[in-house]
Design a protein around this nucleic acid. Structure first.
Length: 399
RNA sequence: GUGGUUGUAGCUCAAUGGCAGAGCGCCUCCCUGUGAAGGAGGAUGUUGUGGGUUCAAGUCCCACCAACCACCCCA
């Protein structure tokens, strides 16, 4: 049956969803701006060589690659961080460090789709490049916290750790420890034992770790930023796929929601990858879909999803004055919609207004035209009154 | 990438291998200048796609496509 369909792992975002996302994005941008971060836009396509060898063996397989019309090896961006590194390397001369930028855009991974996992998804990225201070670390966390607060996300916590706590441990053990919340203590110990390690002891040691001096400093700075203590916490087991993190790492979780909605940390060896010198960096990112999932409806509902006023067309003969009426209504900034079939019966038009969720319907018939009046029908209260044209706008503005 | 479940009308779902159905929604009319209610009628479709088995396939077999679930990984 489905002869037409979206490509595997890709989906449409319908108008209602797109409006919600737009609202969330504009709130996020306002926070970024208030902390002095500027937008950067990089291309969706990069040379494949720019992306290759950056994401490890697993990630490499998930990069979308193809040849463009000129036979060049192209690839769809896999994240926003590697293109940022490329941008930095390419424009090092003219960038003023620390470079603080945010970027919001689609990234592509040829992963096997699942609920909530798509091959194209929107990442919200924020990074500070070119400084290694604890202050920069703290600022990123402050931004993340502010974002979650402005969106009205309830019961979130930003879990913070320092990757340096794991310096003594083999990489494999760290990855197992990171899974504690997911699989539980016994499973963690068992898995560690399987790798010829003393699981119980490693877990106990890891759990009893104290925050590093760097973390203590970051937490103190967060207090200065005015971030409530309850918004963040130390988690000695947090690791995050280790590959490029070199210091502070964080993950934002929401109570009762599986997985994290934001993650990031310090990665001092990655940005310089295209040049000779190391450039320190710290950043974080949100998955826009997972984020909007936990944002309360009230936050995103401020956008009127429906026309406030639907202007009906009484008859073809009255089309001109009706358009004039519509023009006046929408000219005042009220969200209005003109019915687009002059031949349709009035009941059909009102039925449409009802389905569309309009608050009011306007009716301009011969009687109204003659007396310079208009009938305002309140579709929610199921009442209507015929009023003077002059008082129309004050009537509408009341709501 | 590995393993599993599923795919029938716009939506939710029926149909011991034997003429493809229901509810909701949709369209028309009752309706005079008025939507949510009610009444009368109407259209839903190459059963995801392509092969195979069979007198006969929505149903059994194979492949492909897609969605979902558990891994892997992640956002």
């Amino acid at each position: 049956m489905k002869k037409v369909q979206t490509l595997k792992g890709f989906r449409d975002i319908d108008p209602e969803e797109a409006l919600k996302r737009g609202r969330a994005v504009s709130l996020l941008k306002s926070v970024f701006k208030s902390y002095g971060f500027a937008p950067l836009e990089t291309p969706t396509l990069e040379y494949a060589s720019v992306l290759e060898g950056k994401y490890g063996e697993e990630g490499e397989k998930l990069i979308y690659k193809f040849k463009d019309r000129g036979g060049r090896d192209a690839a769809l961006r896999y994240d926003l961080t590697v293109p940022l590194a490329r941008y930095i390397a390419q424009n090092k001369g003219k960038i003023i460090f620390p470079f603080k930028r945010y970027q919001i855009g689609s990234v592509f991974r040829a992963d096997k789709p699942q609920a909530g996992r798509y091959r194209e998804f929107t990442q919200v990225d924020i990074d500070t490049i070119g400084t290694d201070t604890a202050l920069a670390d703290a600022e990123i966390l402050a931004v993340i916290s502010s974002c979650l607060e402005i969106l009205g996300v309830k019961n979130f916590k930003i879990l913070v750790n320092d990757r340096n706590l794991f310096n003594e441990l083999p990489k494999k053990a760290v990855l197992i420890l990171d899974k504690l919340d997911k699989i539980g203590e016994p499973a963690v110990i068992e898995e560690l034992n399987k790798t010829n390690l003393e699981g119980g002891e490693i877990l106990k040691n890891a759990q009893s770790q104290k925050p590093t001096p760097r973390l203590v400093e970051i937490f103190a700075l967060l207090k200065s930023f005015g971030i409530p203590k309850t918004n963040f916490g130390f988690n000695p087991l947090l690791a995050r796929g280790l590959d490029y993190y070199t210091g502070m790492v964080y993950e934002a979780v929401v109570e009762g929601t599986p997985g994290s909605i934001s993650g990031g940390g310090r990665y001092n060896n990655m940005i310089g990858i295209f040049g000779k010198e190391k450039i320190p960096a710290v950043g974080g990112s949100f998955g826009l879909d997972r984020l909007t999932d936990v944002v309360p409806k009230e936050t995103l509902a401020e956008i009127p999803f429906r026309p406030q006023v639907l202007v009906t067309i009484f008859s073809k003969e009255l089309l001109a004055p009706t358009i004039e009426l519509f023009d006046q209504v929408q000219g005042t900034g009220v969200e209005a919609e003109l019915y687009l079939d002059p031949e349709a019966k009035l009941d059909k038009q009102l039925k449409y207004a009802d389905k569309k969720g309009a608050r009011y319907a306007l009716i301009l018939g011969p009687e109204e035209v003659k007396n310079n009046r208009v009938t305002v029908k309140d579709l929610r209260k199921r009442t209507q009154e015929t009023i003077d044209r002059e008082s129309l706008f004050t009537t509408l503005k009341k709501h």
